[in-house]
């Protein structure tokens, strides 16, 4: 790939620019809409340059939501989403790294069976088991709680499987050296396995945080009170039904804010994320 063909480079860049435009345009439209007044946003066609209402619109939704649709303040929703995504990401990593550690480093009866049981659940999406799960969560009185929002989503076959694969690349001699050095299993986990897994943990954190943040169906079922809405649910509730007009400038402001935390996580952890997915050196 050392050929110098200017027209090729040009056409390549054009395709890339086109791709970026396709991805960015809707976001730009959403951003513009979030800076307009109610009247401007409902005119056809909508203006394509940013308006003057940026601070007002965002301040309004953060403090007290929309006026015509849901009145839940978006600030509270963002907090709910953040708590849910964090609990899911941290909980998933904590549980799956420990179960992977058990499966790889301990010999116990039915070890293979346990692994395959975990592995098989990979094939069961949340939607399949959503009614029994709902029943259990409701019976436990966890409706409208953070525990109800996060617990059913925390067990993760994917993460367990990824950690298992990573642990299997750690040479056995490292565990043996640690045994001779006098480290017990948990000490070995804490002093050796965990530091070595840092990049894998970071990569999974990014994936799991975004996964938790974007949950829609489950929060829709287990939250009934406005103060427990997550921002993804909040957007939906702001879109007024029936003959009421929707305040699109406020919906778009909320959407923009819903976009920021996952993007921030990805951008901030990008370097670790890529290393975690490609790293081979042990």
């Amino acid at each position: 790939m050392v050929e110098h063909r200017p027209w090729r480079a040009l056409s390549g860049h054009l395709v890339l620019l086109l791709g970026i435009a396709v991805v960015v345009l809707p976001i730009y439209v959403a951003f513009v809409a979030s800076t307009l007044t109610f009247d401007q946003v409902t005119t056809v066609p909508m203006p394509m340059t940013p308006g003057t209402q940026l601070v007002k619109n965002y301040g309004d939704v953060i403090a007290h939501g929309s006026t015509l649709g849901s009145r839940a303040p978006v600030g509270r929703m963002l907090w709910n989403s953040f708590v849910m995504a964090m609990l899911i990401a941290v909980g998933k990593i904590a549980i799956s790294i420990l179960s992977a550690f058990a499966i790889v480093y301990f010999r116990f009866p039915l070890r293979r069976t346990c692994f395959w049981l975990i592995f098989v659940t990979l094939m069961l999406p949340v939607e399949v088991r959503i009614f029994p799960t709902y029943k259990v969560v409701a019976d436990l009185g966890l409706i409208d709680t953070y525990a109800g929002l996060t617990l059913p989503l925390i067990a993760s076959a994917t993460a367990t499987f990824l950690f298992r694969q990573f642990f299997m690349t750690i040479p056995d001699e490292l565990a043996e050296a640690a045994r001779i050095d006098g480290a017990g299993p948990m000490r070995f986990f804490w002093d050796v396995v965990l530091p070595l897994s840092r990049t894998s943990i970071a990569a999974l954190f990014v994936i799991m945080f975004v996964y938790g943040w974007n949950q829609y169906l489950w929060p829709l079922l287990v939250t009934t009170r406005e103060d427990m809405y997550t921002v993804v649910i909040g957007i939906k509730r702001m879109i007024a039904g029936g003959d009421q007009a929707t305040e699109w400038q406020l919906v778009m402001a909320t959407a923009m804010m819903a976009l920021l935390p996952p993007v921030a996580v990805v951008v901030l952890m990008q370097r670790l994320f890529v290393r975690g997915l490609v790293e081979t050196e042990k």
């Binding site: 001699e173 043996e176 050296a177 640690a178 001779i180 002093d191 050796v192 042990k282």
Partner: peptide
């Protein structure tokens, strides 16, 4: 009360 030296060194990389 023994210490072992491995073929692939088995040093803690971090």
């Amino acid at each position: 009360d023994i210490a072992m030296v491995f073929q692939n060194y088995a040093l803690y990389p971090h």
